[in-house]
Design a protein around this nucleic acid. Structure first.
Lengths: 188, 188
DNA sequence: TTACAATTGTGATGTTTGTCACGCGCAGAT
DNA sequence: ATCTGCGCGTGACAAACATCACAATTGTAA
């Protein structure tokens, strides 16, 4: 069952009784999205923080020239949103869009705040997740600082071997910060 | 007084009574470091998480070729460490070193855990700080994706105008991910 | 099936950036 | 005062990467 997946995910970090988990899960809604659907659209309010049960999302920034830049892929077990817009109640600067059909649990800011204040363990959970995310971002920054396109590509494939089959190369390129053509030439 | 600075900093995010703050500050030690001193050395254990009262630090990754890459500058009011090494009790992969004489408050992992479990408000504080840090890292990633060396340089100067006078251009270059020579040519 | 859009590879060429080399000015040490 | 190392600029050249153009293939919807 879908809710079991979230439970197991959370219990990798903190312990929850069944009652506590019922309380947790009552704060989430569930949603199905189809390929190419938007969960968050640039310029609009960000209503939710998402937990990806299955599928694949891209967090995208569109620059002035209309180019897409992938800030993050969000796959199974990932938590994703436009966090700045979500927490500050401002308009989204990024979009969150399905690469594949995707199942998510959705958490409004209101419910997020209720949840962490009524069940402090969940604040611990989110803190640990946030720290992990911060460390992951630092590693990505480091890969920009230390590595060229080919090395970054190899690191990505090593870290997420699945991604190679699941997403078009154009998207990998715009995650790595190189042109589609350059990425294509790296394989040879 | 120095402890007042930390108090004001924390109170921008959460409210604390005087007793609570005494409790908080009892978990920190205070330390002075001189220019070029190391707070964290690559390969060693990371004993502390630091709050910078005054001065300036660099969080540095040394690559295989001996090149330095600056993951972060840590200035007044910043929290810094090699977080992965700190939280997982592994050896540091990065170094934290003084660019200027620096005053810091130091928090051991033991005291961190005591602090957040005995005073849940502090867990809220660190969660909010961590989220901000995560958002900041994402913006840095975005600047690598969307901008060339000149644009990144201008963004950096806009964000931290002080930095230009306080640190050698070589360090700015290794923060921006360009060579010293390229950075030098950008000014013209 | 048929038609059309999306994906990918690849050549030619230009731009950006890195590397190596050198010189100058300045601050700190002796 | 002299020496020495560091910071900084700059020229010459090489490497990495972007851009534009075109073709082939595959997936997808009517």
């Amino acid at each position: 069952m879908l809710k079991e997946k979230l439970k197991k995910h959370i219990e990798k970090v903190i312990q929850l009784t069944n009652d506590e988990y019922s309380f947790v899960s009552s704060h989430f809604s569930f949603e199905n999205y189809k390929k190419n659907d938007f969960l968050i659209q640039k310029g609009e309010n960000v209503k939710h923080f998402y937990y990806v049960v299955s599928g694949l999302l891209k967090l995208v920034y569109d620059d002035i020239d209309g180019k897409q830049h992938i800030v993050s892929f969000a796959m199974e077990d990932w938590w994703e949103s436009d966090f700045l817009a979500y927490f500050t109640k401002t308009k989204a600067t990024m979009s969150l869009q399905c690469i594949e059909d995707t199942h998510v649990f959705c958490l409004t800011l209101e419910n997020y705040e209720k949840l962490i204040s009524d069940l402090p363990k969940m604040e611990s959970f989110f803190l640990k997740k946030s720290i992990s995310g911060h460390i992951a971002s630092q590693n990505r920054i480091l890969s920009f600082l230390t590595s060229n396109a080919k090395e970054r590509y190899e690191q990505l494939l090593k870290q997420y071997p699945l991604l190679f089959q699941r997403v078009p190369k154009t998207l990998l390129a715009s995650y790595l910060g190189v042109s589609r053509e350059t990425l294509s030439r790296l394989s040879s």
